[in-house]
Nucleic acid binder design. Structure first.
Length: 335
DNA sequence: CTGATTTGACCGGC
DNA sequence: GCCGGTCAAATCAG
């Protein structure tokens, strides 16, 4: 709408052609994203996934359960039937991490992973010394984000926490951040603003904004190139208070999968996912599994917008404010 | 007063 | 019937 308004306000002088073209492209891109969201909320496509990788957090507002491919897809109304949602949640992508916390820091639990969680239950687990805590996204109701996690202290090592994530965040953690109080969990551990990973992610975005330029100097000689500031190694992601280990899951490196990898405050930034990146200093992630039917639809949906002209780099990116919601949803962009 | 946590009850899968 | 996961009323905290 914003771009449409600007388009309407723009004059049609020849020097405005580029600006008009830019707004038109943005509008078209918005249409495509809207169509993608509609697909995710009930209409299933059967396109082949481009990547074997975790689902990318997106701000669709659609519950995770609707993303998964179902043999008999239900209508959107099914979200109102919680029991059915609960069933389908079994199909949510699930992965777990082991987080070690240094006792000298006085932390009573695993560090902030950048997301806002709300505890909704605790349960004594048979055979486990410590109870398991259940968390769901703070923005479940506001943004219909169905990500959950379970935290359980290890029996053998009290400083070790097993964290199981179910579902990916569809929320924008920046949403209403000015008025949204932080959860006590954050108060216990570390303010999100001071989270090194958050800072680094923001720096990465800043770097990207600073360095992501289209080299058009010798456009006639070669294809436009795009300088990319990311180092393939994200050792800086490890919180100094935490000792993370990285493992490989199956045949696929899972860098870019963990929510600790993506910008905590900007889930969309995972759109910059690097299919082959490595994380030397991140958490141990294991048991990555999700319903096999989840990914095809997800990626087909996500890549359905790859034809968006917005990535055509036909306009100067310098003029684009690269905020976390910038629709950089092109997995092929960084190939 | 508002939002988060606690905790017993409830539900569904096995 | 057991057990894990979730709900929701009561309680806590800022």
């Amino acid at each position: 709408m914003e771009h449409a308004k600007q388009l309407r306000a723009s004059s049609c002088s020849s020097d405005k052609i580029q600006e008009l073209d830019f707004h038109i492209q943005m509008i078209l891109s918005s249409y495509e994203k809207s169509l993608s969201i509609l697909q995710w909320t009930g209409i299933v496509t059967t396109q082949t996934p481009l990547l074997i990788a975790p689902p990318l957090p997106v701000s669709t507002g659609a519950p995770e359960s609707s993303i998964s491919v179902d043999e008999n897809p239900k209508s959107i109304d099914d979200h109102q039937d919680f029991r059915y949602v609960s069933k389908k949640r079994k199909q949510m992508p699930t992965w777990s991490e082991q987080v070690r916390v240094s006792a000298e820091n006085g932390f009573e639990g695993p560090a902030d992973d950048g997301y806002s969680w709300r505890k909704y239950g605790q349960k004594d687990i048979l055979g486990a010394k410590h109870p398991r805590s259940y968390y769901r996204c703070t923005y479940r109701l506001m943004q219909n984000c169905w990500a959950t996690k379970q935290v359980q202290r290890s029996d053998d090592d009290p400083a070790l926490f097993d964290i199981t994530y179910k579902g990916t965040h569809t929320c924008n953690q920046n949403f209403n951040c000015a008025t949204q109080p932080k959860s006590p969990e954050k108060h216990k551990f570390k303010k999100q603003a001071n989270n090194p990973r958050t800072i680094q992610s923001n720096q990465m975005l800043a770097n990207l904004q600073a360095n992501l330029r289209v080299n058009t100097n010798d456009l006639d000689k070669k294809e436009a190139t795009c300088s990319f500031p990311f180092s393939p190694t994200f050792s800086g992601f490890a919180d100094e208070n935490l000792h993370f280990q990285m493992s490989q899951v199956g045949d696929n490196l899972v860098g870019g999968y963990s929510p600790s990898f993506v910008s905590p405050t900007t889930p969309e930034s995972s759109y910059f996912s690097l299919p082959s990146c490595q994380m030397n200093g991140s958490r141990r992630i294991h048991n990555v599994h999700h319903s096999e039917s989840d990914l095809p639809d997800l990626f087909s949906a996500n890549t359905s917008s790859t034809s968006s002209p917005i990535i055509g780099l036909e306009f100067p990116l310098d003029h684009v404010e690269l905020d976390p919601n910038f629709p950089f949803d092109n997995s092929e962009f960084f190939r």
